[in-house]
Design a protein around this nucleic acid. Sequence first.
DNA 1: CGTCGCTCGTGAAACATTTCACAAATGCTT
DNA 2: AAGCATTTGTGAAATGTTTCACGAGCGACG
Lengths: 211, 211
Amino acid sequence: MLARKIADSTVRRLAIYLRFLEEFEHQGAGTVSSEALAARAGTTSAQVRKDLSFFGSFGKRGLGYDVHALAVQLRTILGLTRRYHVILVGAGRLAGALVQYAEFGARGFDIVAAVDRDPAKIGTRWGDLVIGNVADLEKIVQREQIEIAILVAPADAAQALVDRLVSAGVSAILNFAPVQLHVPHGMDVKNVNLAVELETLSYALQHRGST
Amino acid sequence: MLARKIADSTVRRLAIYLRFLEEFEHQGAGTVSSEALAARAGTTSAQVRKDLSFFGSFGKRGLGYDVHALAVQLRTILGLTRRYHVILVGAGRLAGALVQYAEFGARGFDIVAAVDRDPAKIGTRWGDLVIGNVADLEKIVQREQIEIAILVAPADAAQALVDRLVSAGVSAILNFAPVQLHVPHGMDVKNVNLAVELETLSYALQHRGST
DNA sequence: CGTCGCTCGTGAAACATTTCACAAATGCTT
DNA sequence: AAGCATTTGTGAAATGTTTCACGAGCGACG
Ligand SMILES: NC(=O)c1ccc[n+]([C@@H]2O[C@H](COP(=O)([O-])OP(=O)(O)OC[C@H]3O[C@@H](n4cnc5c(N)ncnc54)[C@H](O)[C@@H]3O)[C@@H](O)[C@H]2O)c1
Ligand SMILES: NC(=O)c1ccc[n+]([C@@H]2O[C@H](COP(=O)([O-])OP(=O)(O)OC[C@H]3O[C@@H](n4cnc5c(N)ncnc54)[C@H](O)[C@@H]3O)[C@@H](O)[C@H]2O)c1
């Protein structure tokens, strides 16, 4: 669809702009300037305009951007005009927090399945969601037409689960296990490593004074 | 301590190298090459060497790096030679997952307090941790000598809580609420926004074929 | 003890991202 | 309708990050 390769940092910011646009929309604002968006998102107006310019010209000079129209554009760019079926692989504590997080559903990500290995958990419910047996992973992925997996199983089980997810046809994985996953070319994997986040904070704490 | 400003991407990778070094150490490996580390961490050997070179010369030419010695160096660089007291602000589902995550403790981050606003939660326990009243936030931060706060309260309460944390003397914040926080210059804030992670995946899913 | 194979450390080059700065639109006012 | 105050969109410059490529150091081995 798009010739150029867009930086990950740009895509992230677009997602953040969308969040603030929706907030503005809720407050009834009709238009917004790059300056105002930038202030909210913690960046600069030039950055906002540059980010948007990769995808087209959405503003009106002298006026700014139509809040609703830009939100629609960003949803289109980000692929949020449709819904995605998501599976939780591993039904532990973190999965339990994620499953009740309303924001995912609000953004089009429906958690339609969860699987675990523990017989004590299989068959129990989280709201309407019945925890399935990880042995049936491939079957469930196909039956529920799942495109995205959130991997919240222990690190040592992660790679084997990923291999199965890939061959079952999942196209993208959000990985919380602190391991480097190997996947075929073309698959998208995003890693979230909370321990690393804390460590960058401790790095910053230590290197104070060189302000 | 260090003249140059180090890129965030470099610091993150150092934390990841450390993880794999510890794994190698566990397996009894004495030395490791930049090539081997890179393979595990999903980067290149030149990147590994460059990252390390910002902080010194830790390897032996022809041999590689001493696994244990490099791990010690990285812990020093990252500020992991001491422990940090951490508070959970908000004692909801996500906090419940984080409090039992062993890896934080293993890396030197001790969750020594949690607070909430809900009277039904205040006074209940998570292991040895008694959930405190958010009204006593400043008192608890000072009593427990807390340096790092993990913000897992609702988005609309976030900024007010941050202001209180800052004035109570917390130096770094890991923020899970999907808002842009404003803090005085010098404070460190790291944002984790899981919805944004999913949105970058949906962006990638949509823009396939331009491989 | 000299040579060989290996791997580090590091400037320089290539590449990527952000910031700058200004012409071109746009609506408002008079 | 012309002038003015804004704010966009975008090349170009500045800055930041990664990759390249090679000299230098190290241990092994004959
Ligand atoms: N809890 C956190 O705050 C946190 C933070 C960051 C990362 N993580 C990572 O997320 C993952 C899950 O963390 P958690 O705290 O929810 O752990 P948990 O132990 O509460 O849950 C893990 C679940 O996975 C299940 N499981 C084990 N092997 C499995 C398999 N082969 N197939 C399917 N399910 C399997 C277990 O039965 C358990 O229910 C871990 O990799 C952890 O390192 C957790
Ligand atoms: N659950 C997730 O998977 C998830 C994922 C990403 C981000 N988040 C964010 O993390 C935060 C917490 O999420 P959660 O799922 O744990 O929500 P939750 O509703 O389970 O927990 C929030 C807790 O904060 C408490 N609280 C409310 N106001 C407070 C205040 N002023 N001071 C102290 N405590 C207060 C509530 O009583 C509740 O116990 C939210 O901002 C959410 O957007 C959650």
